[in-house]
Design a protein around this nucleic acid. Structure first.
Lengths: 183, 183
DNA sequence: CGTCCGTTTCAGAAATTTCTGAAACGGATG
DNA sequence: CATCCGTTTCAGAAATTTCTGAAACGGACG
């Protein structure tokens, strides 16, 4: 497996961005490589293409699997594991958002609820701040839950509506009985 | 400055989450501390409360300022810098999203455009994949641009509408001339 | 202009994360 | 049940990130 200059550059970029994205360089590179390849790759091919150790590849693939970012494939008559990324970019984004929420938001929401459970602590400002934060996070996660139920087509439709969404609120009185401005 | 048990636990949690959020422990802790305190704190107070070095505090504050996550205040007759977080949680979220986009998305969007600029590379699948990715990111960043123009109240309104948004698409034919299903 | 009070910088130390090679593991097959 | 082929684990090495203390800096004030 040798990489085209295009693949090379893309892979290196994903490697560099890896740490900002909460994964490491290798994981970023492996993902990039799979993303650009139509045919699934096995661990040996990945190892060769990226010039990393076999065990590093194994770790990286495990990590990507824990993120649900890769699909495992099997080739008839070959018992090695082959990996790809989903074709559908929207599916990838959904997964990414869901997994980041799981790792970055949910533990904090749990912690905030715990802190509230442990009763008044004689620090009214902090308590209010924590409650407020919990409420906001709940609102956002609930919104996310509902958006993730939408079919992709609907989601895209909403996104492309863009600014019109704001105006829409005024035009749908039945759904928005408490709007501030009358038209 | 001594912390209440509530503050203590909140601060430690933010410290632990820091690395998942793309900041480090200290930065997370400083932010948490400021978040829970109504009155602004100076670097010395932060240093004492968290038991870290003065220079570490300085670095952390610099980092938080680069994220636009803290506000600088001055107390009359005192030339030390005092810091707080904005009161408005929505403002905080807006900032967070904007900054993460700047760090995690924009560089990649730039890179993708560069790769496309460098012309056909005799790797049609990779090229198509890159173009597709760029288009999706553009759609999402554009959507973000438009959402960030909305007043907070509107945003909250949209979020609490939740699932109704999906159905809404069918009921607004003027804004959605290409919808698939007729009611 | 020198002192005082606070902030920032920076080089090295400490801690953490990532990566490797070797060994253990596993399960299909003859 | 031994061998073969591939995967996973793991302890130590390497790299990176974070943190510290000391020194440099800066600007207000007498």
């Amino acid at each position: 497996m040798t990489l085209s200059p295009l693949q090379q550059e893309f892979v290196l970029h994903f490697g560099e961005m890896g740490s900002r994205w909460g994964i490491n360089r290798t994981v970023g590179q492996i993902y990039a490589l799979l993303f650009l390849n139509e045919t699934p790759l096995n661990a040996e091919q990945i190892t060769g293409a990226l010039g990393i150790s076999r065990s590093n590849t194994s770790m990286g693939l495990k990590e990507l699997q824990s993120w649900n970012l890769v699909r495992l494939r099997h080739v008839p008559g070959d018992r090695r594991d082959y990996f790809t990324t989903p074709d559908d970019l929207w599916e990838i984004v959904r997964t990414l958002v869901a997994e980041r929420r799981k790792r970055e938001i949910d533990p904090t929401l749990t912690k905030l609820r715990e802190l509230e459970m442990s009763g008044p602590q004689d620090d009214p400002y902090a308590e209010a701040r924590i409650a407020e934060l919990r409420e906001m996070i709940e609102m956002m996660t609930q919104f996310h839950d509902e958006m993730s139920r939408l079919e992709t087509e609907r989601l895209v439709q909403l996104m492309t509506m863009g600014r019109k969404l704001g105006g829409l609120l005024d035009r749908t009185p039945r759904l928005n009985p408490f709007r501030r401005k009358t038209q």
